[in-house]
Computed example of a mutant assay.
Amino acid sequence: MFESLWRYRHFISSSIKGDLQGRFVRSRFGGLWFILHPLAQALIFSLVLSEVLKAKLPENDTPAAYPIYLLAGMAAWTLFSDILTRSMNVFIEQAPIMKKIAFPRLCLPLIVGGSTLITHLLLLAAIFVIFIFFGHAPGLTLILLPLGILLIAALGFGLGVILGVINVFIRDTAQVMTIALQLLYWMTPIVYPINIVPEQYRFIVELNPLTPLIGLYQDALLFDRWPDPATLIWPTALGILCVAFAFVFFRRASPELLDVL
Rank of each mutant, 00 (worst) to 15 (best):
L150N: 01
L123T: 06
L144S: 06
I149A: 01
I149L: 13
F157W: 13
L155Q: 09
I152T: 11
V161W: 07
A153M: 04
H136D: 05
I143L: 14
L124M: 13
I130Y: 09
L163V: 10
H136P: 00
G158E: 10
G164T: 13
I152L: 15
F157H: 11
F131Y: 15
T116V: 13
F131Q: 05
P146K: 06
L159T: 10
F131C: 07
G164M: 12
I152W: 00
A137P: 00
L122C: 03
I152K: 00
P138C: 08
L150Q: 02
G158P: 09
L124F: 07
L159A: 15
I118M: 07
L145P: 02
T116M: 04
L163M: 14
G148Y: 07
I152E: 05
L163R: 06
V161C: 09
L117R: 00
L124T: 00
I162R: 00
T119H: 14
L159P: 02
I127C: 00
F134E: 04
G148I: 01
I132V: 14
I149Q: 03
L144E: 12
G148H: 06
I152Y: 05
A137Y: 14
A125P: 00
T119M: 06
L147T: 11
L144P: 09
A126T: 08
L145S: 00
G158Q: 10
I162Q: 06
G160I: 06
G135C: 05
L121Q: 03
I149V: 15
G160M: 08
H120E: 08
A125M: 13
L163P: 01
H136I: 02
A137K: 14
F128G: 00
H136N: 06
I143Y: 13
F131I: 05
I118K: 03
L147G: 03
L117V: 08
G164C: 11
V161L: 08
H120W: 13
H120V: 03
H136F: 09
I127M: 03
F134L: 05
G135D: 11
I130E: 07
L163Y: 10
L117E: 07
L123F: 10
G156F: 08
L155N: 08
L142F: 14
F133E: 03
H120T: 12
G164L: 12
G139E: 10
L144G: 01
F134Y: 15
L123P: 01
I143T: 12
L124Q: 03
A154Q: 13
H120D: 11
T141S: 12
T116F: 10
L155P: 03
I149T: 07
L121K: 02
I162W: 07
G156P: 12
H120Q: 15
I118S: 07
L144Y: 14
G139D: 10
F133W: 14
I118V: 15
G148K: 03
G139Q: 04
L142E: 00
T119V: 05
L163D: 02
F131N: 04
A154I: 00
L145Q: 05
I132F: 14
L124G: 01
I132G: 13
P138D: 06
T141N: 09
F128W: 09
L122F: 15
L144R: 07
L151Y: 11
F134S: 02
L159S: 12
L117W: 08
V161M: 08
P138Q: 04
H136V: 04
I162V: 15
L142N: 06
A125Q: 09
L151T: 01
